Simulated assay, not measured.
Amino acid sequence: MTSRDLPHPGILRYTAFSTDPAGGNPAGVVLDATGLDDAAQLAIAAELGYSETAFLTAPPEGLGGEPGRAFTVRYFSPQAEVPFCGHATIATAIAFAERHGPGDLLLATRAGTVPVTVTEEGGALRATLTSVEPAVLDAAAADVTEVLAALGWRASDLDPAAAPRIAFAGARHLVLTAATRSRLADLAYDFDRLTALMRALDLTTVQLVWRESETVFHVRDPFPVGGVVEDPATGAAAAAFGAYARELGLVAPDAVLTLHQGADMGRPGELTVTLRTDDTRVRVSGAGVRIPENG
């Protein structure tokens, strides 16, 4: 796709959670979506075909934040609007910082207010979002059984030390922890069957996790409800996973976790999840870079 093909002249293309345009998770970014209605935003997202595209408009009254650095943001997948998207938030913040400098942004999302900070490290920009207040909920046994059937997994494929849960940090994700790396690597699922259950449970993705070490995890995120087989690097799910890992006592209360995602798709990315005892919200950090027009 070239710039001539894009349905709106202000569309930008960035990848998040990687400094390589061929890695991480691509997102569309429109820094000024004034005048674009829902149908136009959905059409742009569908034309781009990325898992999400972010659209900035003026902030709601009373949001606060630094003038010129506070916005309303909406996220559209190729098929529907989603309440929150982490990788598109990181991409948007880096796109904004390239034009207006590093610093703080305040974003009003459908899920709540999300602060983002962009810093420059070694000549590269890195963004950190702070999630809305997270929650971790029980997952019904029947629902877990149905998800496993859709994935083609057995109950014995799960890590018995980490029970399935629904985790929220802006969007709902069912977290399933695989017992082995090979189980995580072998992903082939019933698209329609998983879509139906995810819609019934209001899930954005199913986050599949394998633990490499105390603080290092590998993750994958089927995203059929967005019209995408798999999301390459999922910031919202990373935030939800941070809340899940803390709730289940899998990590220390103060912890910095590294999540590797996308390698099985040929788009490796790295997400940093920070948990703090002085704040129940979860921080997700990553790099980002613009995708060339011929990329």
Rank of each mutant, 00 (worst) to 15 (best):
P21N: 08
A200N: 11
F55W: 03
F55K: 03
A171C: 10
L36S: 11
G226M: 01
G112H: 11
V225L: 10
F217G: 04
A178F: 15
A171T: 09
H260C: 11
T234C: 13
T15R: 11
Q79G: 08
E98Q: 13
A97Y: 09
A27T: 07
T180H: 12
G152Q: 05
E98G: 13
V228R: 04
I44Y: 07
A46L: 13
L275M: 06
A185H: 13
F241P: 08
A287T: 14
G286T: 02
D143K: 03
G266P: 11
R193I: 02
T205N: 05
L174W: 11
T234V: 07
T130I: 08
P292Y: 14
P134N: 03
F55M: 07
V284Q: 13
P268C: 04
P232K: 00
G122D: 05
A196G: 12
D138E: 14
V118H: 06
Y75F: 15
A111H: 08
P115F: 01
V282L: 08
G235A: 06
E270W: 06
P26N: 05
V144E: 02
D38L: 00
T204A: 14
T205V: 13
L201W: 10
G35P: 04
G103E: 04
D264H: 13
T89D: 01
T280Y: 07
G122P: 07
G62E: 12
D38E: 15
D37L: 07
G235F: 01
I94E: 04
R154P: 01
P9Q: 08
I11T: 13
G68M: 10
S213F: 03
T277K: 13
L6E: 10
V282I: 15
D159V: 00
P102A: 14
